[in-house]
């Protein structure tokens, strides 16, 4: 068996803030195979974005952050990268795209320069002309019409969808093996979102690139990922192969998350089953399952012991729950 591209074990990110220690990502473990897409879904404060940034090696540089555990990328631990590793991996073998395509581009820099500087950073022998040629090629790859003209424009001269394409082109510059997409379509209109997701899917396929697709929206991840991990309060609560996950959820939180959203497939005026309360304050941890205070199926044990992510019988479908919903919804389909 070949080793996975990304092998994450007990990854924990802690921030020291004025309100005390905040554990944003708490003992998270997962594997990602080459060329595969893992969707990471959670609400705000679930730690999904911090997880993405930590895998990228971006949080460990913050003065108030501590990262423990391991992130093995192709066998090399990059959880706390030194300067050399960072230079070798960041932007070259692992790349990232961000939520807001406008604010993640430097407003005073030409579109083209964003790309050429990445190219030349990781390949010092590249000439200016060659970098320019490659940048225009990349803009073309992400289906930006008239790439040579766009090369010489500023970010504010492009539409939101175009800007996100530029973000993708920058990320692709050095043909990374792993792309971390942090809410890549949240700031975009729904028609543009579809284009961008299609583009990402195709590029992964063409270039054999693996992707961590981070989103608050299960709908964005559905149909676009091989595996899904649902995060809540810093922990992965459920992890499964997508086809399996969307057929039935084992963790009450995952199910509640799906039920709470007014899907277009639901009949008009449908009553929504909402989740009462709100996510726990990450600065105030309590014993037991983190979802227990909001869970419909809570039992005494849930408030005392913390369940770990275990696959209960069904292969590769883990749920951090003492009383998973196995039998309840095995046949019910959410999709049309």
């Amino acid at each position: 068996m070949s080793r996975p591209l990304l092998h994450v074990r007990d990854l924990t990110t802690t921030f020291t803030t004025s309100r005390g220690e905040v554990v944003s990502v708490d003992r998270v473990s997962f594997d990602l195979e080459r060329g595969q897409t893992l969707g990471i879904v959670g609400e705000s404060g679930s730690g999904k974005s911090v997880l993405g940034r930590t895998v990228m090696g971006l949080t460990s540089a913050a003065p108030n952050a501590t990262v423990t555990g391991s992130v093995l990328f192709d066998g090399v631990d990059i959880a706390n990268p030194d300067k050399k590793t960072r230079a070798q991996y960041l932007g070259a073998r692992i790349a990232m795209i961000f939520q807001d395509p406008l604010s993640s581009l430097n407003p005073v820099k030409l579109i083209g320069v964003h790309i050429t500087e990445t190219l030349r950073r990781h390949d010092k022998s590249l000439s200016r002309q060659e970098a320019r040629r490659r940048a225009i090629e990349l803009l073309d790859t992400v289906r930006i019409p008239d790439p040579a003209r766009r090369f010489g424009q500023y970010p504010h001269e492009l539409s939101g969808g175009m800007r996100q394409r530029v973000g993708i082109a920058i990320a692709l510059a050095c043909r990374p093996q792993l792309l971390i997409a942090d809410e890549p379509t949240t700031a975009l209109d729904v028609t543009v979102q579809k284009h961008v997701l299609d583009l990402l899917g195709m590029l992964c396929e063409e270039q054999g690139m693996a992707m961590l697709l981070v989103s608050h929206d299960l709908g964005v991840v559905a149909g676009r990922s091989d595996k899904v991990a649902v995060m809540y309060a810093g922990r992965i609560q459920e992890e499964a192969v997508s086809s399996d996950f969307f057929r039935h959820q084992r963790h009450p939180y995952s199910q509640a998350l799906l039920d709470a959203k007014p899907h277009l497939e639901n009949p008009a005026r449908a009553e929504l089953v909402s989740i009462p309360g709100r996510p726990p304050d990450p600065a105030h941890r309590f014993p037991g399952c983190r979802f227990a205070p909001r869970c419909r199926f809570v039992q005494g044990r849930c408030r005392e012991e913390e369940p770990s992510l275990e696959s209960g019988g069904i292969p590769s479908h883990g749920a951090a729950c003492f009383y998973p919903l196995d039998a309840v919804r095995s046949t019910q389909e959410v999709s049309i």
Binding site: L58, F98, N106, E117, R121, I170
Partner: peptide, 14 residues
């Protein structure tokens, strides 16, 4: 603190 600085770091810029 802007995103574009984060994205520059993600590109591996020192």
């Amino acid at each position: 603190q802007e995103d574009f600085v984060l994205s520059a770091r993600a590109k591996g810029m020192p």
